[in-house]
Design a binder for these strands. Structure first.
Lengths: 178, 178
DNA sequence: GGAACAGTTCAATCAATAATGAATAAATCT
DNA sequence: AGATTTATTCATTATTGATTGAACTGTTCC
């Protein structure tokens, strides 16, 4: 069965938890929208969005219930967010459930996200580039020249891109963020 | 029926076109890999990749045949690439088919891509942010304060991000790209 | 110990996205 | 005009990716 995109704002939570208020709904939508642009699954964005607007850390079953997620999605999404450093556990006295809060520093978030995304790409791109060059050398005549020129271009693209990342990070952290 | 990921390097092209050589195969793989990171369909990456390594402009049926794509995918992918400015038509004498070549300037490519991706996001994010603030004002007590603080934070994130884009563009174009 | 709770894993299911190809249009040739 | 070539559109099909939930693990409480 397909779960509801977002539970209705009105109506008492049939999960036993308070339904989302309009601020929560809109904030979550904002993050879901962003997640599309970044190619991230909506459930993850929903979890982060709700933790982000929440004035206090939430236990897993609470955001699961309020977002109408399955236990599996919640668990996986939470893990992903923790690995990314976007969410951190917070102990709450007299409650054995784990509670979580959003890490809300743009620099951290964006930095880690970029690192994760970009790193996974540059992972074997270097290796592949070398292979392209090796193969290009085996060609003959003008084909060979063109192939080598293209390979060189790719190398320079890679270098340029790699150089930009730290700068972006610095800008994200340094901008008068107040 | 599923098409082959990439036609085998050896073996005469059963489409009547030359099979891909190793340089072409590896270059295409590189772009396909990148397209995953960027959330773009592989067929588009294949087309761009082949045009990128090709020493001469290719007509649609040629890259369609060599990549083993359907006519539909080729046509749509080509259109997407043209809209993005990543590929441009080139007239070839005594051939009535349209020929295309890759636009291979990192600055153009990345710039247009970012614009397309990011712009579509910031499209209505401003509107949504205003709505969040409006709704937050209707809340009471500490909840209200927290919600307003979060909304303010989102606004600053947006401002920061918007400010960075032009800088990234400048860096992509300006780096000693040789 | 064992019942209730909190959480994870993963194979099966469902939804979203990409690719296909038949129908069609438009242009060029004879 | 009619035949041929080139290319586009879009409903259908295939593929990928996200979500579910039942089975399981480990804790805590009585």
């Amino acid at each position: 069965m397909k779960r509801n995109a977002l539970p209705p704002v009105t109506g008492s939570g049939r999960s036993g938890f308070a339904p989302l208020n309009p601020v929560e709904v809109e904030t979550i939508r904002l993050f879901v929208q962003l997640s599309r642009a970044l190619g991230q699954p909506p459930s993850v964005a929903e979890i982060y969005g709700l933790l982000f607007v929440s004035p206090r850390p939430l236990p897993q079953d609470e955001f699961t219930g309020r977002l109408n997620l399955s236990k599996g999605s919640a668990s996986q999404g939470l893990r992903y967010l923790q690995d990314l450093g976007a969410v951190r556990p917070v102990a709450v006295a007299a409650d054995r459930r784990g509670h979580y809060e959003a890490v809300a520093e743009l620099r951290n978030l964006a930095g880690r996200f970029l690192r994760q995304q970009v790193f996974s790409y540059f992972q074997d791109s270097g290796e592949r580039l070398d292979k392209i060059i090796t193969e290009a050398r085996k060609l003959a005549g003008p084909e060979r020249d063109h192939a080598l020129a293209r390979a060189k271009m790719l190398k320079s693209w890679e270098k340029n891109s790699k150089r930009i990342l730290p700068l972006v990070m610095a800008l994200l952290g340094g901008g008068r963020g107040k």
